[in-house]
Nucleic acid binder design. Structure first.
Lengths: 148, 148
DNA sequence: CCTATACATTTGTACATACAATTGTTGTAA
DNA sequence: TTACAACAATTGTATGTACAAATGTATAGG
């Protein structure tokens, strides 16, 4: 990926600006690839993410604020995102009896099954995206990103 | 930035997945910082970007497809984005006389003036975002990102 | 010429997102 | 116990985005 080529410019871009643009361009790639990989399952990247969080919860239910906390992109309305998953039958939602302000969200067996397929597709997408990276490079990249 | 800490998980995330998540998290930071930096000027990141492209055009006008080509995030409706900039008086739009299908978009003096201020704010935002990176690290990061 | 096709942009529409206000519930201090 | 503030989630609304269809213009083949 060559930044100048993508932006079709011959100008010299300052290193700092170039880095930020570079990261945005990479993110576009990721975002497109992810959307595409999940398209057959009719879920968005963040919906997939929520399912993954719920899977990680095991038997313990999650409430909305927990989900929000752990999502990659903090959303203003996780409520409606859960509505969508509910409509697809991938999660269940119940009022928490010990604190009726909270809700208990769980992934359903149907959701778990669907998540398995999605995970395979996402894994393949990730491998494809990063196919030009050797393991030490990935480690180096992660180390650098930690500086943020 | 620690991925596991942000996602509040103790689980070991596979390196490839972790890298993708890392990049998405970084992009969220960038995107928030950019939106925030441009808020006082009432333009979005992509609107700023289009103004920057138009500035780079010098006296030559750009048409819609040119803008689309050079934007960081390719949009489906650059048309309406230009509408917004037009409403703010930052750009002018005229039908191209040599080919009436095309339009000629130029940045106005008012747009140039506003862009100066925005550029300063964006530059400061970028420096702040990357303050933990030394120059060689930035070069290394850019080199790694080229693998995409 | 006339028609079909390609091109450049715009518009319609459904869906997503951000932000603020609202609802319902709980804890707490007078 | 009763107000009041804090909490958790939901809803309203305005704005943004994606995708497809439509509009208007130019080009090429018969």
């Amino acid at each position: 990926m060559n930044v100048e080529e993508i932006l079709k410019t011959q100008k010299k871009i300052p290193l700092v600006t170039r880095t930020v643009i570079h990261l945005m361009l990479v993110n576009n790639r990721i975002s497109e690839a992810s959307t595409h990989a999940l398209k057959p399952y009719d879920v968005s990247t963040e919906q997939f993410n929520v399912l993954r969080i719920l899977q990680g919860q095991g038997d313990r239910p999650a409430n909305l604020s927990t989900l929000n906390e752990r999502m990659i992109t903090k959303m203003s309305n996780t409520s409606r995102l859960v509505d969508k998953l509910l409509a697809k039958g991938y999660v269940s939602r119940a009022v928490c009896e010990s604190n009726r302000r909270k809700i208990e969200i769980r992934i359903t067996p149907k959701g778990l099954k669907a998540l398995e397929d999605m995970s395979r597709a996402v894994k393949a997408m990730e491998e494809e995206l990063l196919k030009n990276f050797a393991k030490p490079q990935l480690q180096q990249l992660n180390a650098l990103l930690d500086n943020f």
